[in-house]
Design a protein around this nucleic acid. Structure first.
Lengths: 339, 339
DNA sequence: CACTTCTTTGTTAACGCTAACAACAGTTGA
DNA sequence: TCAACTGTTGTTAGCGTTAACAAAGAAGTG
């Protein structure tokens, strides 16, 4: 690509290419859009002109007339956390592979108004579709009043207002963790949960409860955390002081780290005296002391599926009210042992 | 905002609002853009019409004529890692506060071609400016051939081709870590470095070397990792088998976790026999066993500054060849002790 | 009172592209 | 020979907005 004749001047437009190639601008457009009826000799002449002038088509002008920007909007919450970050990454990769740009709004806090603003913001910008990573009840609610006419998919969105949802089966994950601990002979399993307004936290609690119930065990009162290692640490200190605790299912790996730390400080040995299971399988978990048994979520798959569903809608499909569930995977390591 | 008369029809445009308010479309435009010369009575009539029709302005059309999209592009590498994720988050927050959208391209691998493509991709889309998170030498090189005319800022970009750079002072960080260990009476300090093509890794090595040299100590051969806990673990196994190692500066916290794990397995006590310092201060570090002494990077500040510099350029400032450096902060915890 | 100036509004022409239709050659077929 | 078709290209008219200029009235000034 050369800069050539337009050096220092304004960027070349389609008309410049047309003149250079001795055709009409419409023929240039046809070449660019792979229309069938262009003589191959004409096509090469146009391509040469494009190359010579260093022409790049103006996608804004294109979007104005086609009404499609080939941009997807993503609304997420705190992309500093491993889960959201991985999900957004998966979404971005899948979107690009499908030929779409991604415009991201990362919310600091999620109230209904914040999500609404973000959605309006994206709709204004002319995105073709939106993925909302809505792990909280409040965010999921905001999906009830969507910008009209913009196809939307929710990730981890519960029964979000009429839009398709892609999520990891949190209930199943909670069940897997709990059943594993029960199968090791533990009388019951304690639980450090995530914040109560998070759907994921709720799902894990439900799975944990279901597994205990099925085994005919009493469910102890869960300890509530906020996903942070510190909150896990505090829960861990409480648990360490209780003699009857032998198994703990912690709702994410970061809090599990805090629990492990508290146990170490209090001289509670893992897994000899207490077994611990986490959730997420962050890259660090394998190197905790001891390496953490956990439930892996395939965030990449969630991202890919959400884009698949969205693109299917964009490209003509009907607004199906589908619900895609990605199964979690149990990962055995060294933080759990026989009672 | 009501949906009103256009229910089920096409979205209302400026002309519809104009007709509703009994003015010309240009007057509507003036109201929307806060032009001074509009009679206040006219203004309220227009605003009422906007509200009644549920009108939202078409930013694509606006961008076509103004040549500004109020969108910034961000090119980053693997936003799953804590550092890049935090930086991008900081950028996004700052950009939104400044009234800009953010379009993100997250590269899987960074070769020069990949970065180039991403830049073209964004330039095509009509972004007003670009932030490149270019922590690798290869990425930084790609800044040499930038899309013409799009203001750009590099984050962690070394001496990137003529564009402003915002970064954390990695050399100073490496120095802080090493000096701390030397001040505790350690004879010398070993180093587990990041990948050699990362500028950050290089800076930390340089700081470590400088501190040792200044103290008149021999620098041992550094062990190379790839930022992952696993590579730290492997380095840790090597170090554990060497009797003369009493202090290790690890180039990031994730690898430090791996080192700690290897030491634990081999019965090497931290900090009693070996002191360990990490880098980054990820949220987990405080809860490692033992809590990790480390160097904190203020990723949020880096993001904010990069947007500041970029916006200053966009809004008329000259393309200054500036270099903004954010100082790292030493964080003392329990993984270091007197030799 | 004529003259300039200011305020408010409207009219017209872009911005760079694609869609729709028109036009023209070169076939083909009756 | 004329009509109908086919493949290729050009012409025109938008998309929805802002910029530039024009115009009309109000207000100030000598």
């Amino acid at each position: 690509m050369a800069v050539g004749s337009t050096l220092g001047r304004r960027l070349p437009v389609m008309a410049d290419v047309a003149k250079e190639a001795g055709v009409s601008h419409q023929t240039v457009s046809r070449v660019l859009n792979d229309h069938p009826n262009v003589r191959s000799e004409t096509r090469t002449r146009v391509l040469q002109a494009i190359d010579k002038l260093g022409y790049r088509r103006n996608l804004v002008a294109r979007a104005l007339v086609t009404k499609h920007s080939r941009t997807l909007g993503v609304v997420s919450f705190d992309t500093t956390l491993y889960g959201p970050a991985s999900t957004v990454y998966g979404i971005e990769q899948a979107a690009r592979a499908a030929g779409y740009f991604v415009s991201i709004v990362s919310l600091k806090s999620i109230d209904r108004a914040g999500v609404r603003d973000a959605l309006d913001y994206l709709a204004d910008q002319g995105v073709d579709g939106i993925v909302v990573v809505a792990p909280q009840r409040s965010a999921a609610c905001a999906l009830d009043d969507l910008p009209l006419g913009v196809p939307t998919v929710a990730v981890e969105g519960g029964e979000a207002g009429g839009v398709p949802v892609v999520s990891v089966d949190q209930v199943e994950g909670g069940r897997l963790a709990t059943e594993h601990l029960l199968s090791l002979g533990h009388e019951t399993v304690w639980h450090v949960s995530g914040p109560s307004d998070w759907l994921e936290a709720e799902g894990r609690v439900a799975g944990w409860r279901a597994a205990l119930e099925q085994a005919g065990r009493e469910a102890p009162r869960p300890l509530a955390g906020d996903w942070s290692p510190r909150s896990g640490y505090e829960a861990g200190r409480s648990l360490a002081s209780m003699r009857n605790v032998t198994a703990v299912f912690v709702a994410n790996d970061q809090m599990a780290l805090g629990v492990l730390r508290a146990f170490t400080e209090q001289g509670v040995r893992v897994p000899e005296r207490v077994s611990v299971v986490g959730f997420d399988d962050i890259p660090e978990s394998e190197f905790f002391s001891p390496p953490l048994t956990t439930i892996r979520q395939d965030f990449g798959a969630v991202g890919r599926h959400s884009i698949e569903v969205l693109v299917r809608q964009l490209e003509g499909g009907p607004q199906e009210r589908e619900r895609l569930v990605v199964p979690p995977v149990f990962v055995a390591r060294a933080s759990t042992a026989w009672a």
